[in-house]
Amino acid sequence: MAAETTRPKKDTKKIRAAIKRRKHATYTPVKPDMQLGFIHNNVDCIGCRACEMACKDKNGLPPGPRFRRVQYIEGGTFPEVFAYKVNMSCNHCAEPACLPTCPTGAIFKRKKDGIVDIDSTLCIGCRRCEAACPFGAPQFDPEENIVKKCNMCVDEIEAGRKPYCVMACMMRVLDIGPIDKIWDGSLDTVAIGPHDKVVRQVKNMADIELTHPSIGFVAHSKGKVE
């Protein structure tokens, strides 16, 4: 009964035209004027997942797709144990692996701030991007039969604010900023403590050489990569 209400109608003409366009286009990576990225403190994060809930609520997601995922890492042997968190959504990569896989050209990277977004009116739910992403960012929404992902709350950014996840962080250990400033430690943010150093790669994530993700971490001593 009334199931058509939950699945938006597709404009097939528009999609066909997009595929055609896509076939003839040569892929050239977008070099943004300024690249925005995330910073997450793996150590001070208490793993509360308020960011995840804020994201689900903002984006009206059903159970299943999770744009933001807080990974709980633990190890050691009783009683010498350790635990930390690695928190990721979409990394809005310099060379997004998802983008060239999209048959309709629905995925695009913004020139202005490097945010990678999906035009949901063009997405046909083929899920190729989902397989291509080494970080698990694209998430399939079975209700709408399309892939969705974090777009850093572009509407909030355009209104001069920050994404819902960042503004939800109870510990203030998740933030965004120009990624160069995050990496060289010059960003003014409480996510990075006075003695903390920012790294680009931690354990528990794919090799950053794959896509050059726009994210920095304050790593746990056990999560550091030599």
């Binding site: 509360c48 997942r49 308020a50 995840e52 809930m53 804020a54 689900k56 503004m167 939800a168 109870m170």
Partner: peptide, 9 residues
């Protein structure tokens, strides 16, 4: 006064 995950859901 930032709400926790319960409040957000």
């Amino acid at each position: 006064l930032r709400a926790c995950l319960r409040g957000r859901s």
